[in-house]
Design a protein around this nucleic acid. Sequence first.
DNA 1: CTTCATTATGCGCCATATCCGATAATTTTT
DNA 2: AAAAATTATCGGATATGGCGCATAATGAAG
Lengths: 83, 83
Amino acid sequence: MNDLARTPKQLGTVIRRIRKQRGLSQKQLGEKAGLRQETISLIETGNPATRIDTVLAVLAALDLEFRVGPRGKGSAADIEDIF
Amino acid sequence: MNDLARTPKQLGTVIRRIRKQRGLSQKQLGEKAGLRQETISLIETGNPATRIDTVLAVLAALDLEFRVGPRGKGSAADIEDIF
DNA sequence: CTTCATTATGCGCCATATCCGATAATTTTT
DNA sequence: AAAAATTATCGGATATGGCGCATAATGAAG
């Protein structure tokens, strides 16, 4: 369950995994996000030049959001660090 | 402590806040991230068309990373949801 | 008020996103 | 194997990023 994104490729992988969990096709997700199927494809394959607002639209369509946090540690493992 | 970013503007605000906490100028941060001061300025003012890899470079320079998580919920408050 | 540092804007340039439309290439289903 | 659905790619058009270089516009100090 890797939900952290340090690179465009990691981000694409996360988005693809969650999209499939939701049982959506790229086309369907694109419609929800106001984007084309081709654009979703690019994002999921790790295109580094994707616009940030495009990524945010996709996250919103999946009921997700970005969080900015300290680097290192595993996704849900560093609870100690929060306190 | 608003570390969530649903919009380019929120993202810019978060980055600016943390940059200042680190006592860095835009120019200094730009050097660490391999970007120009002007580019940092654009990001912090919420430019929606910034490239995702550019954003990631800035986060890395600040020892930060993105996390993709469910929308809603408070930043570090929903520990219950992790388990 | 004056000076110095920081941040925001401007122009030209090349690269590329995203769009539209079409179509390969791949995967899934029958 | 064949058909259907999904995903990846191509060409053209329009728009804008981020670079270099320069310079305003603000802000912080003295």
